[in-house]
Every structure is written in C-alpha cells, then in structure tokens.
Design a protein around this nucleic acid. Sequence first.
DNA 1: TTGTGTTTTATTGCCTCC
DNA 2: GGAGGCAATAAAACACAA
Length: 250
Amino acid sequence: MSEVGMSQGDEEELLFSSAAYISSNHSSFYSLPPSGCVVTYVRRACMYVYMYMDDVLRTGETRRRTRRRRKRARGEGSGEASKKRRLNDEQVKFLELSFGEERKLETGRKVQLAAELGLDPKQVAVWFQNRRARHKTKQIEDEYSKLKSAHDAAVLHKCHLENEVLKLKERLSEAEAEIRKLTAGITGASGGGGGGGGGSSSPSSSFSTVTHRPLVNGEFGVEGETDFMYIYNDYTYNNYMMDLVGLYGM
DNA sequence: TTGTGTTTTATTGCCTCC
DNA sequence: GGAGGCAATAAAACACAA
C-alpha cells in the first residue's frame, strides 16, 4: 500500500497508464489483462520500456513516427483526398438500417449500398467494420452491467441472510434458556411433591409461547417481518433495492 | 476562443478461409 | 494468394466546459 494513501487499484492504474504512456505505441502492451499484481505490472512495464527503447535505438524512431513517415511517403496526410469525410445523417441512417438487417456485408450488397449512398464501397465496408466493433463493445458493456447487478444483489442478499442467521441464533439461545428454566422448574416440583406426570409438559408446548407459527417461504416470523427468500431468477437489483428502501428506509 | 475529451472514419497488420 | 474479418491504433471531426 502506498505511503501517499493510494489504493492498490490506484497504484496499478498509475503504473499501467505510466508504462503505457512511456511505451507509447507498443500495441501488445494494451492487451495485458486488466488485473494482476503490481509486481507483474512493473516487470512487464519495464520489459516494454526496454523493448521500446531498443526499437528507438535500433531504428531511430518510434512506431508511431514510422507510420506517419510511411503515410507521408505515400503522399497522404495533405490535400483534400486525405480528409476524413463525415457521413451525413441520411447516409448513417441508411447504413444503420442495413446493419439492423444484416451484420455483415456481401460484396454485391456492399457495392449496391455504396452506389445508393454515393459512397466508395471501401467506405461502406469500413463503416460496417467499425459498426460491428461498436456493437461488440456495447454487448460486452451490457453483459458486464448485468453481471455486476446480479453480483451486487447477491452480495446484498448474502448480507441480509447473515443478519437473519444471527437473529435466529439469538432466538434459539433464548428458547434454549427458557427450556432449561422450565425443565429445572419441573424437576424441582416433581422432586418435592412426588412427581405427577411431568411428561404432559413437553418442551415443544412451552416453546409455543415464543413462536407458534411455522415459517413459510418468504417469512421468518421475527419482528418487523422481512421477505428475504426471494426467488432470484427474475429479480433485479433495482427492484431489490427499492424493496429494501421500503422495508428499512435505507 | 481554446484546451480537452469523445466519437467517427480510416489504416495497418495479422489471421483465416476458400 | 486474394478477399475479408478483427484488433489495435491514428487522426480528423465534433462536443463542451472554462
């Protein structure tokens, strides 16, 4: 843990981004897993910095510079031809519709779309490629937030179940104490007055003063009755939170 | 207006399939 | 070996706060 009050996550992030910054254009660096121990990050960061420096010393330029140089060599990067042409709203709408119908383009469809929109077929292909990438990213994000909600709800549920266990344990020990008390009374009375069918007063009957009602699903039979036994499958985190707010004023 | 962050378009390099 | 897909990235275009 850091002396300046940084969490391990902060430190990892800092190391990760610092190393990424230094190594600048080593694409493989970015494929590192998003978690791991700090030592691994430092080692890998050093390795990439070393590789980067080695590259620069050997070739005299960074990869980014190499790319720019190549571009310049091809005569790109200047003039109207190299300008990015932003697609207009109509074109984007049309492409979106098309993407909705089919995620991938066959050559014929690509050429047809390009002709209809007054675009280069390559542009259409690129648009679809990028659109697929965006779609994939969004799917991953959605999946992540679903999993996170489920996880959060599960953690919350676990917490409340643990609370319930504590309460029930408390009740159990109270009940046991009462049984002990009653048993002592019975044995004391029978010892003094010659017995008299002590069996009629079973522990269960005396216990009935504590609670008599059997617990049903969703009910614990404790004060301020709660409903923790949710069926999880179709229960969302938000619903759960709203219910809790209602129940506990959280 | 300008600096900065985000989005969109385009490129590069690698891989797979036919 | 060429076409097309994908991941990673560059860079232009855009949005927006200060």
